[in-house]
């Protein structure tokens, strides 16, 4: 069944678990790189379905972020709320200097699991929309 949402993530766990069930645009990279990828989509008209700063874990703490988007109708039809939200999210993320470029795997795994859980808390609503 084709859903009208798409998932963008830098979290391999999300891709492994849901990659074949939903459209998961997975690419490894930092939290901020993921936000910039989301911004490019938003500037091509995509609409944000989840908040880019979801979760209280700080952008410079967790390496992972997953965002739901609804595909848009091209750059001439911007969703301005989404534009403002992603721009503010990038400004906010920039306030936090990346502090853990090197992180033990068991901590990375915990962050990945929490990001997965945040993403799963939005799944029921997204699939019903």
């Amino acid at each position: 069944m084709a859903y009208n949402f798409k998932i963008m993530t830098n979290n391999e766990l999300v891709f492994e678990k849901y990659g074949n069930e939903y459209e998961v645009d997975y690419k490894p990279g930092t939290y901020e790189e993921l936000l910039l990828r989301v911004r490019t989509e938003v500037h091509n008209g995509a609409k944000l379905l989840t908040h880019p700063l979801s979760g209280s874990i700080k952008p410079n703490e967790t390496p992972f972020k997953t965002v739901y988007l609804k595909k848009g109708k091209g750059p001439l039809h911007l969703d301005f709320d989404s534009v403002e939200m992603i721009e503010n999210a990038i400004i906010t993320a920039k306030k936090f200097k990346i502090r853990f470029p090197v992180m033990p795997d068991y901590i990375r795994a915990d962050f990945a699991l929490i990001d997965l859980s945040l993403m799963e808390s939005a799944l029921p609503a997204a699939t019903q929309a």
Binding site: L48, L49, T50, H51, S54, G55, Y68, L118, M119, S121, A122, A125, A126, A129
Partner: peptide, 8 residues
């Protein structure tokens, strides 16, 4: 304070 914007 949910993750999903429509919930907000």
């Amino acid at each position: 304070e949910n993750v999903y914007l429509a919930d907000k």
